[in-house]
Amino acid sequence: MSQDFPFVGKFPLSDYIDAGLDWMTQAFSGVTRGISTVLGGGVETVVAVLSFPPPWVVILLIAALAWWIAGRRVGIGTAVGLLFLWNLQLWDATIETLTLVLFATAVAVILALPLGILGGLSDGFKRLIMPILDLMQTMPAFVYLIPAIPFFGLGQVSAMFATVIFSMPPAIRLTILGIRQVPGELVEASDAFGANWWQKLFKVQLPLAVPTIMAGINQTIMLALSMVVIAAMIGAGGLGSEVWRAIQRLQPGDGFEAGIAIVILAMILDRVTQRIGQQRKQQ
């Protein structure tokens, strides 16, 4: 066959990867089960808490928070948008998606910050991590769904795992960039006054990198939102599964309703997090 490579057989890359993943599934089963319990429990609890009061209370609270962070226009826009979602009977799905996105983003940022700082301070580590980030970003997002299942089983934690991997790179990249953008003379000035490694990092480098890091976190949130929709295929629930259901039943109207809901959620998250970064910049 034309597909066959001459003389030697196919390099069994997929076998190796499967074997590796199998081994990891076995070896880290304790860890993955622990993560599963903690995160799964966390997501469930938050969803339950947000679903308990009548929707208008939650909408009011979120809108107030948006107003406080990003001003009147964003606050009012948030209230209107969320009320519309409630009206479309997508409130429960929205809560679920929002919670997943925020959890995934939190985990991604917690992992990304130290990696980004290391990459910002060490040329060697940057050289090591950059190709890995390229790989993580160019790999089709669906591929992450497959190994997530043996690790964490079908459901929200698997969806979150895939989401974290897919959405983490911009946060790492922009943390690296932010740290490296700090003018050399400011680093030298802090050296001249006898600052040690930690003081330099926390008093000079990180504060000056905050606007750039926030831009990275904003992108991470946007990627997380898009991935959470895809992750509906492995049981993420929420707005993604509404879309998924519409595809399977060929109901374009329902599909667009859910799609518009995702757009509204994305706009709210984007405006609010962008503003956090800008506020720092204005100083």
Binding site: E185, L186, E188, A189, F193, G194, A195, L208
Partner: peptide
């Protein structure tokens, strides 16, 4: 060395090198 820099040296830079934040 850090201790000496903290106690004995003060430094002024050409482009001021003030911390903008």
């Amino acid at each position: 060395l850090l201790e000496r820099r903290r106690r004995k040296f003060g430094m002024v830079f050409q482009n001021f090198a003030l911390f903008p934040h």
